[in-house]
Design a binder for these strands. Structure first.
Lengths: 132, 132
DNA sequence: ATTGATGCAAACCTTTTGCAACAGC
DNA sequence: GCTGTTGCAAAAGGTTTGCATCAAT
């Protein structure tokens, strides 16, 4: 299985977008990726961000994360299993280490639902915003 | 506090949209609401669905639910706390009874994150799709 | 009869696509 | 130099809004 087949050519745009996602504090929206990557490439077009994100998704280098009240976000696929925290104040989304759900994937729930994966989002205020 | 102030007038369109959401097996997308409510009102326009959903949100009769890989969904606000299950096969989203997260709202996590709410989505196959 | 609600079409915003110019290899 | 990639602008989707008409009160 090949990894990182994000297209045939290594371009500065793709390097920048990939780096921005990998170095983020949590999953980013396309808008956030564009803002941060534009600081590295300047002339970067939005269409390139969309195209590259799609490419990275198809090559499984990144994954989609859905957070309530926000557009789809993207994060590196090779991160250890974890969950997310969204700050109601600054709107940033952070990774939280580890899994806090007591139901392992593979469980069958009463009713016949077979669980294969899960997503947990905690919502509240982050340390910067609550002075904690 | 007044409830159900979904506008000043009771119209068949609003009744239909509200009924569809309340009777659903889980949270619905605008598209699903439109499809189901159109069977009750026939001439129902999409703009009316959007306007009514926004109205129901503002009056707190319904709430937004974000499910990975799907548009925003809406459910009645007076449901008991619960979580959601999304079937990878038929794409439907179901309500699951009760809370399965061992972290109560109000908890402060190490790192300074103060948890005020949470959302949990389980993903897998539903009984209809896995023959269970 | 009054005025809020609806349906349609235009406007908007986000995401995708066509294409000529550009840049990896 | 060949051909994949980029940036721009046009197109496509989904959501919102303006407005004349319709209907709840």
């Amino acid at each position: 299985m090949k990894q990182s087949k994000i297209g045939q050519r290594k371009t500065t745009q793709r390097e920048a977008i990939s780096a921005v996602i990998r170095q983020a504090e949590g999953p980013l929206t396309v808008e956030e990726i564009s803002e941060r990557a534009s600081k590295l490439v300047a002339s970067l077009g939005l269409a390139t961000v969309y195209r590259t994100v799609k490419l990275l998704l198809e090559s499984n280098e990144i994954s989609i994360v859905s957070i309530p009240h926000s557009h789809d976000r993207y994060e590196a696929s090779d991160l250890a299993h974890h969950h997310h925290f969204r700050c109601r104040n600054c709107r940033l989304v952070f990774d939280l280490p580890g899994c806090i759900l007591p139901i392992p994937d593979g469980t069958s729930l009463p009713g016949g639902y077979k669980v294969e994966a899960h997503e947990v989002t905690l919502i509240g205020t982050c340390p910067e915003c609550n002075g904690g």
